[in-house]
Design a protein around this nucleic acid. Structure first.
Lengths: 115, 115
DNA sequence: GCTTGACATAAGCACACACTTATATAAGCA
DNA sequence: TGCTTATATAAGTGTGTGCTTATGTCAAGC
């Protein structure tokens, strides 16, 4: 029942804080590699590698402009994750039982076997 | 702008297909470790380890019932990711140029740290 | 044509991760 | 009391990831 889109790649791409920051920057609009690299301490190759991960995940697309390769967000990848999460959100909003949640959190642990 | 929840942990937890399947199963309701392990070819310890990752990410909570430890979905973690993605979706759908406008357009209560 | 600027790719390394088997703990039951 | 069930933790191992430096490519400008 899967759409075939790569959720693995999308979620693991966004697992990295640098890549989430890149995506956050691209939410403001198109940007070149150099522009994307500027705020970070890492080198340009590192950013290029991050961008490759984001592109392979379908979250970002590339354009050619002279010697530059501006990136922007891709709708497909974002939509796929969003859809998966929407399913969970729907379940939670419908079934969430506040009291049970509280009780689970307050469960006595006298024997200290937790974590 | 931090929800207090760890997006790093949440996204990387869901990067693993086994863990996404576990979450998918929990969307149908509470389940024990053995029940969660059944559909997979991996061993029980592996599932316990996956569950620890999901719990640390705030996506799943535990309850004590005799010798069993049934898990269920936790609303907070899912909501945090959902919110982050909603911001991106909004940018893509509305074709905004600037993130600022999107943030200004979002519900005030969802923008900052509450409580 | 040669240099520069913008990027991609390659190789190597340290560390994180998913898995395994083996063992520990705790509750229920004969 | 011991045996079984449910789960957690430990230790070891192979694989993956993120970073680095070094180098390659390709378009622009002189």
């Amino acid at each position: 029942m899967d759409t075939g889109l790569n959720l693995d790649a999308a979620f693991s791409a966004l697992a990295d804080p640098t890549r989430r920051a890149i995506v956050g920057r691209l939410a403001k609009g198109e940007a070149t590699v150099m522009e994307l690299a500027a705020p970070f301490k890492v080198t340009q190759p590192a950013i290029s590698q991050h961008l490759k991960v984001l592109e392979d995940a379908g979250l970002v697309v590339r354009r050619v402009e002279g010697t530059k390769r501006p990136r922007r967000l891709a709708k497909a990848g974002i939509a796929a994750m969003d859809q998966w999460l929407a399913m969970l959100r729907k379940v939670l909003e419908k079934n969430y039982d506040r009291l049970d949640e509280v009780l689970a959190d307050m469960e006595p642990q006298k024997r200290g076997e937790r974590r």
